[in-house]
């Protein structure tokens, strides 16, 4: 089973990188870009057939290491 994990900064946290990307896109002429949030994408191969068990494990991984709950939030897909 493969977990596709998306980690982003919380909405309440300023994203300096995203801000710079917004400015760069605007200067390229993409004037309709209002905001950009830059995050992290992680793919994990799991030796696990049970979807519920896999979900539980990925939550643990995200909570313990992959994301920092002070500044980040995460979501993931399993397939």
């Amino acid at each position: 089973m493969k977990a596709k994990i998306y980690i982003t900064l919380k909405r309440t946290v300023l994203d300096p990188q995203g801000k710079a990307v917004t400015n760069a896109l605007n200067s390229l002429g993409f004037n309709k870009v209002l905001d950009t949030r830059v995050g992290r994408y992680i793919e994990i191969e799991l030796k696990e057939k049970n979807k519920q068990a896999a979900e539980k494990k990925v939550h643990q991984m995200c909570d313990q290491l992959l994301s920092n709950p002070v500044i980040e939030e995460y979501r993931f897909d399993l397939d």
Binding site: L9, P16, N68, I71
Partner: peptide, 17 residues
């Protein structure tokens, strides 16, 4: 120390990048 939870808070990238 922040990551270990021995101190509160977290670090973000410098605003000036």
């Amino acid at each position: 120390l922040l990551e270990a939870g021995l101190l509160p808070g977290a670090m973000l990238r410098n605003t000036c990048l």
